[in-house]
Computed example of a mutant assay.
Amino acid sequence: MTAGTDFEACAAGETQALAENRVDLRQARRDFLVALEPVRASVYAYCRSLTPTVWDAEDLLQETLTKALAEASQRYEPIRNTQAWLVRIATNTWIDSLRRSGRVTLEWTESALDLPDDGAEDPLAALAVESALRQLLHLLPPRERACVVLKDVFSYSLAEIAGMLETTPGAVKSALHRGRTTLRAARTDSAGPSPETLAPGPRAAGRHPGHQALLRRLAAAFNAYDIDAMVSLFLASGRSEVVGNATETGHGEIRAGSLTDTFGPDAAEIHRSTVHHFDGEDIILMWERQKNVPGASEVVSDVLRVRPAFGAPLVAELKWYFFCPEVVAEVAGGLGLPFKTNGVSYF
């Protein structure tokens, strides 16, 4: 994946003014993403603590960033704490998604107003393994999970958490007490309820019949640098998305965009693809090394996921996580492979 092709020509029905405005908006979004880079990793870590998979965490982060851009464009007052602002948007987005699912009840209570707050033992302190931490956190109902993470992982005060979650410090204290109590019990009770029982939400889809075969055909086309073969594996209405940066629909856009950028003669890197299994899902890893650099090392630079078409051995959607540094690091690092990250946007 290299710098993206801009589709500047006016499509049928698009005015010149709209085309120019679209270009300006795309640049404004890129600038916005770059401006948020200093806090992005922390906000992703928060999203990851709320969600069951790396993919769900990135989806939540992307939705948070999209909402943040819209909200920032309507603000006249300065954003005094950027990380707290993004955490609030992420929390509300996540809770709204759970509420819409109809599978959880989200209520606050202030029944623990007399409990200590800052001096309570941190039940997460003894957990050195990140996956174990996540497993325990997913035992908690949504609001308790958010409160425990914000207090015991990010060290926000009760008042700050109350502001982010749009409630009172007393309600935060009560949720924090219940969450800590549940976590302490879980650490000594291996027969406790499963994360799937207490933390409903989107889960990674099971392995689709023929999914791995489709990925291997796509990876083979990548490795052969056969753009015609790559395009032929997509539905006519298929989509290719460079997550957080660009979307292409249909064979023409996909060919002219991400595929030509990555595999065309002007690409600055040599790419190789391999198929792996990670977190219950088959994925493609894209390796790269610099052209014309003797002895250049090869590293993973991208993670690709495929959503197959229903009833046909074709790609309905391909997602490139090239500009999602936390995803690349978690997936490639989790597989024990060398990797590089690429920032958050073109240019």
Rank of each mutant, 00 (worst) to 15 (best):
L33E: 10
W55F: 11
E121M: 11
G119C: 13
Y44T: 00
L133E: 15
L133I: 04
A112M: 12
A70Y: 13
V87K: 01
L140N: 01
D31R: 14
A70D: 15
L98N: 02
Y44A: 00
Y46N: 00
T66M: 14
P52C: 08
R40P: 02
R40Y: 09
C47H: 02
T91Y: 02
R40G: 01
Y44K: 00
R145E: 12
L137V: 14
T91M: 05
C47P: 00
L86N: 00
L69H: 12
R40M: 02
A84N: 03
G102T: 01
S49L: 13
L36D: 09
R103A: 10
Y44P: 00
L65W: 10
R143M: 13
L136R: 05
T64P: 14
D117S: 13
R103S: 14
H138Y: 15
D118Y: 07
R100G: 07
P78H: 01
N81R: 13
R99S: 11
L25A: 08
Q74K: 15
V54I: 13
L106D: 04
L127W: 09
R30G: 12
A41M: 10
E58Y: 14
C147V: 15
D122Y: 11
D117Y: 12
V54C: 07
L113R: 14
L140V: 13
L106T: 12
N21K: 14
A19W: 03
Y76G: 13
Q83F: 04
Y76D: 11
G119F: 06
A45M: 07
D117F: 14
L61R: 03
L106I: 08
T82D: 00
D96V: 04
R145P: 04
E77M: 14
L133H: 06
V129C: 09
V149Q: 03
N81H: 11
Q27V: 11
G119K: 12
P78C: 06
A57V: 05
L139R: 05
Q83D: 01
T82R: 04
R75W: 14
R40D: 05
P38R: 09
R145D: 04
Q135K: 14
L127H: 06
V104W: 04
L60C: 08
S49W: 08
D96F: 07
R30Q: 15
A128I: 14
R29Y: 10
P38G: 05
S97V: 03
A125V: 12
T66C: 09
L65N: 06
L18Q: 07
Q27I: 13
L86Y: 00
R100H: 07
C147P: 00
L65R: 01
S111W: 10
V104D: 01
R88M: 09
L124K: 10
P142L: 11
V87R: 00
P78I: 07
D114H: 12
W108H: 02
V34F: 04
E121C: 00
L65G: 04
A70T: 06
R143K: 15
S97G: 08
R30H: 05
V43F: 06
E121P: 01
W94Y: 15
L115Q: 10
